[in-house]
Amino acid sequence: MRWGMAIDLKRCIGCYGCQLSCKAEHGTPPGVFFARVLKQEEGRYPTVRQLFLPVLCFHCDDPPCVDVCPTEASFKWPDGVVDIDAEKCVGCRACMMACPYTQRYYHDEEQFYFPGNGPTPYERARSQRHEAGVVMKCNFCRDRVRAGKQPACVANCPAIARYFGDLDDPTSEVSRLIKDRGGYTLHPELGTGPAVYYLPP
């Protein structure tokens, strides 16, 4: 059993829905993004395209971030999800230096979205759980998945461009999409074995 994701770049419209639904789900502090959408131009006018690249923690099979962690705060669940135990994290940021995909963010100090106003009721309920002085990242929406739901960014994607499932099961939707559409991972040359695949546009 290994959780993984396929992101269909043909369907993706760069709407930021994943980045923002993730924020809404986890109440991540300012400047912390478990999901992001990158934009890039290809070609020269007028033969040019805007390309969108939605990214998140790739939940590597051989995660450098875990190798360098001195406290085992960063660890891998048996189902392949790479997670951080905030209780154990000393905030040494070695994992940020180790992640080849810049998917880790240092939550340096408690901070809220309306400067000078303290936390909103929402932030009190959702954001204040996150302790400061530690590193944060996507956990494949562990709680939702445990509750039998899809990750927030997958369930919400308006273009239905994100698919989540078991990479070890060749019959799962993700596995089939990756096989049929020739899914690929980013920086495969690093041998990190990401669990997030992209389907070509």
Binding site: C15, G17, Q19, L20, S21, A24, F114, Y122, E123, P158
Partner: peptide, 21 residues
């Protein structure tokens, strides 16, 4: 209407709702 999915603005509604301003 939306079929269970919202755009980036829609999912961010609470930040407008709870805006102290």
């Amino acid at each position: 209407v939306g079929k269970g999915r919202l755009c980036g603005k829609g999912v961010s509604g609470l930040m407008t709702h709870y805006d102290p301003n």
